[in-house]
Computed example of a mutant assay.
Amino acid sequence: MNSASLTLFAAAAGAGQSPPAWAQFIPLVAMAAVFWFLILRPQMRRQKDLQKKVGGIKKGDQVLTGGGFIAKVIKVDDNYADLELGPNVRVKALKSTIADVLPQGGTAPAND
């Protein structure tokens, strides 16, 4: 190739306009928006619902602890809940370790 053709290629390559600098950030903003709406927002909503449920527990409710135990609430304080795991088996648990509040009727067995 000669130098004349190289200068023509260089001129042709430089003739096209590059996009503005802010346009490079559009994909990053789009990924952040998708991350927010598909991951963070639903997780915050679930966490808020759980805090609302745990804040409203009262004597007689059935709860699921973080360790997987299903227990009946005997007494509730600001930070603690006294739970009955079985006959004459009582424990004191932090309210923050309660994973879920079960519905009053309980759940139907799988085979019914």
Results as ranks from 00 to 15, higher is better:
G66L: 03
P27H: 00
D112S: 13
P42A: 06
A32M: 06
Q47Y: 02
A10E: 08
V89F: 12
S5I: 09
A15T: 05
A23V: 10
F35W: 12
S3N: 08
P20D: 08
N88T: 11
L102S: 07
I26P: 07
V63G: 10
G105S: 14
G16V: 13
F35D: 10
D61S: 01
D78R: 00
S18C: 06
L28Y: 03
A10S: 05
G60F: 07
G86C: 06
K72P: 00
P109M: 04
N2S: 04
F9E: 05
N88K: 12
G68T: 06
G68D: 02
Q62G: 04
V101D: 02
T65I: 02
V101M: 01
A32P: 01
Q51D: 11
S96W: 14
R45N: 14
N111S: 07
G67K: 08
F35Q: 05
A23F: 03
F69M: 13
F35H: 08
F37I: 00
L85C: 09
S5P: 00
L85G: 13
G60D: 10
L8T: 10
M1I: 07
D77Y: 00
T65E: 07
S96H: 15
D100V: 00
S5R: 09
P42M: 09
Q43R: 05
Q43N: 05
